[in-house]
Design a binder for these strands. Structure first.
Lengths: 345, 345
DNA sequence: GTGAAAGCGCTAACAA
DNA sequence: TTGTTAGCGCTTTCAC
């Protein structure tokens, strides 16, 4: 494999000269530059990034992206947007996928140090980082799609870009209430994971309380890891124990799709018998029958804003900030007024 | 940031000693080892991968994965499987996502050289590599999910793991024929991209010919980039111009879902009026109503087998091979016997 | 405008 | 068992 030395030898100049033309430094004669470039092509020379990064005194523009649960299609456009934004800003993105159960704080810190990264974006992480974990990173951190709500981490020590989960869940649940629904179930992630699911659950409860409706445990369905299979089974069980349920708020699109199937398989109709509303806005749920009614998250914006904040912090020492991006209600066909509203009220 | 020198100085030994304990080499006294490990913890030392890789004389176990069109959910489980398999084999996976239009052969070659990778997996690539492109890699290459059918690349110069696209498409189309369908449309990717879509189109045509049915251009729907939106519009147009169509073979699950929606929105029923069959087997299409009938690809197996072959070639110089993995027909509810079979025949 | 030389952090002979 | 030393391929002063 050709090295910079080979190129230098090939055209009789010093390696430093080759380095200069390769990096577009001034003070190189056109003739030398041409000669070097010709040699580069001739020898099929490709710079070795490993050596380049090691030698570089100016910091290498690179950030890490730790994705927990990358099998979730919701993250795909976000990851793509982050990749594009990094590319555009001249940064290299190092991606690390970790299983749902893994410790992304530790993994992230290790990644940052071993690859000498200048910043870190956490996608789909936990909500309970400790102060110590926060300090271990040593570089600016942005939490994408979530806020560290349950830990004791200083809000000044990191940034975040997400939707206002509790509030959006409140809005979703309120849509159901406003349509006359009284027996409203909720489809959550596995028990007590101190995550997005819990925040949305709070919004759901608040909406019920504000409407003067009771919060009932047997209207709660918990599907471990947001899986469709678990959601499907959970909703079947729900309908069996609570045949009076007329609406379901799902914390994710995919679980709502599974719920729809469960309802259908039991011989009921969406939205005639049971209404459905969710949060996420996956592209594919525009093609469900009927179209899923859901609060669409601006996925690309979530990713782009995360990169913007991170780079601003890295390059200009900008203060940390926590931004909420808005969602947009896609009015599909899974929500209808409650037919039994009067008697149920 | 602490370096190996700091650790060495901290506990009064040479850097080589630190290096030895860090890399688990034998011939280090327990006492020294303990001392070093303590210092490592004390100083929060994390080895610098960049320097390590540069210095390593033994080749760094790493492979590249170039994914073209990573926004396709079909690839997610494959990427995850490849990542897991690499991890298990002690290899580092470097992922490069590139847009659908990009030149993955060039990108792949650049990636391999600049990061000094030992092998390359191409996911979702083109089908027409030239011999020259093949040589440019310089390391073993495995094409995952496709075979280089249209280029003039030697079959001995690379490996591949995929389904037998033409054959599976033949089977899918044949299922429709066997159910009495005579006017069978096909839902393809954008025009003439010399890709999977074309191979499947071949299988479709062959199946029709073998059944003595004509291959008609106006039964072909082409949706650029496999997008759902294009598939939806395309199928609406298809039904408008060919109201006699009773079945559609889609080369991908997602396009089939979009087709289903189009059929429904036009007031028709699946499978009563139009039957649907596809290839892919996405998890989420188990929850469509009715369940999509499709040939399920063993996604994890595709990824794992690719890694196995690549590493075998790297480490043992194994010969290149081309393996076909099988699919499994998931009999959902989108396929029914043709009601107009008699008159149409 | 160009070359010589030092070193980035680490590994791996080779000595001791 | 441990220390010394020479690089890995590149960037970057500092001379010339």
């Amino acid at each position: 494999m050709a090295t910079i030395k080979d190129v230098a030898a090939y055209c009789g100049v010093a390696v430093s000269t080759v380095s200069r033309v390769l990096n577009g430094h001034p003070d190189v004669s056109q003739a030398t530059s041409d000669k070097v470039m010709a040699a580069v092509r001739e020898l099929h020379y490709v710079p070795n990034h490993i050596a380049r990064d090691l030698a570089a005194t100016r910091p290498v523009k690179s950030i890490g992206l730790v994705v927990r649960g990358a099998e979730n299609p919701f993250y795909i456009p976000i990851i793509a947007a982050i990749g594009d934004a990094c590319e555009a800003a001249g940064y290299t993105m190092v991606l690390r996928q970790i299983p749902s159960g893994a410790d992304e704080a530790g993994e992230g810190a290790e990644l940052v140090q071993s690859k000498r990264l200048m910043g870190l974006i956490l996608l789909g992480g936990r909500f309970d980082y400790s102060q110590e974990e926060g300090k271990a990173f040593g570089v600016p951190v942005v939490c994408c799609t979530f806020v560290n709500q349950f830990g004791d981490l200083d809000q000044e020590s990191y940034s975040s870009v997400s939707i206002d989960d509790a509030n959006e869940a409140y809005r979703a649940t309120h849509e159901l209430v406003a349509n006359g629904h009284r027996h409203i179930a909720v489809l959550l992630d596995a028990p007590d994971d101190r995550s997005i699911s819990e925040l949305r659950y709070r919004g759901y409860r608040q909406a019920l309380e504000d409407a003067g409706l009771p919060v009932q445990d047997d209207l709660v369905v918990r599907a471990p890891n947001y899986t469709m299979g678990a959601a499907y089974e959970g909703v079947r069980a729900l309908i069996a124990r609570r045949p009076d349920v007329t609406a379901i708020f799902s914390v994710s699109d995919l679980m709502a799709i599974a719920a729809m199937k469960a309802i259908y398989d039991l011989g009921f109709d969406v939205p005639r018998d049971i209404s459905l509303i969710a949060i996420d806005g996956l592209e594919s749920t525009r093609y469900s029958i009927p179209v899923l009614t859901t609060f669409v998250q601006p996925q690309r914006e979530l990713g782009e804003e995360s990169v913007r904040i991170l780079i601003d912090t890295i390059e200009n020492g900008a203060e940390s900030k926590h931004v909420f991006v808005g969602t947009k209600l896609r009015r599909g066909g899974t929500l209808a007024p409650c037919r039994t509203a009067d008697e149920a009220a």
